[in-house]
């Protein structure tokens, strides 16, 4: 690992009570990124938010609220990029088929993926050996 590199690998039970813990870890890491040229407080809030949204996607939809499953979160920060991976064991979905929210219609749901795609530079969702991974990254420079 390079000297500016940081890596976090966490597994938590598939339960929404862990959202705040993981969100807070992401937020605290972002606050320490002195090399980030933008507003660090805003970045920190956004990282908390995208981690929360990605975990909810894994917990409620991919892992179908099964409390015995696990959600695996991987965060890697290099000199110029922040990368987050959230792994689930569910059926998966096609991220490109999720439509953007219709702003004229008032739906209760359907804003999570839009928020992630808006706040991060690169977002993908793909199959891996025992499930799927939602991968999202943000340039730091």
């Amino acid at each position: 690992m390079e000297k500016n590199e940081l890596e976090i690998d966490i597994k938590v039970p598939n339960q929404t009570r862990y959202l705040s813990l993981i969100g807070r870890i992401g937020e605290d890491i972002a606050k320490e990124l002195v090399r980030y040229s933008g507003n660090r407080e805003t970045l920190a809030y956004h990282i908390n938010l995208v981690l929360t949204e990605a975990m909810v996607n894994a917990i409620k939809y991919a892992n179908a609220d099964d409390p015995d499953k696990m959600v695996h979160i991987f965060i890697n920060i290099t000199d110029d990029e922040l990368l987050i991976k959230v792994f689930d064991n569910g059926q998966g979905f096609d991220i490109n088929s999720v439509p953007p929210p219709d702003f004229e219609k008032l739906e209760d749901r359907g804003r999570g993926i839009f928020i992630i795609k808006t706040l991060m530079d690169c977002v993908s969702y793909r199959k891996v050996s025992d499930g799927n991974v939602l991968e999202m990254s943000k340039k730091l420079r």
């Binding site: 959202l19 949204e53 739906e107 209760d108 749901r109 804003r111 999570g112």
Partner: peptide, 13 residues
């Protein structure tokens, strides 16, 4: 201090 899409969704509901 923090709201996610589910929180927004509850208010929309």
């Amino acid at each position: 201090r923090f709201i996610d899409s589910s929180g927004l969704g509850a208010l929309v509901s």
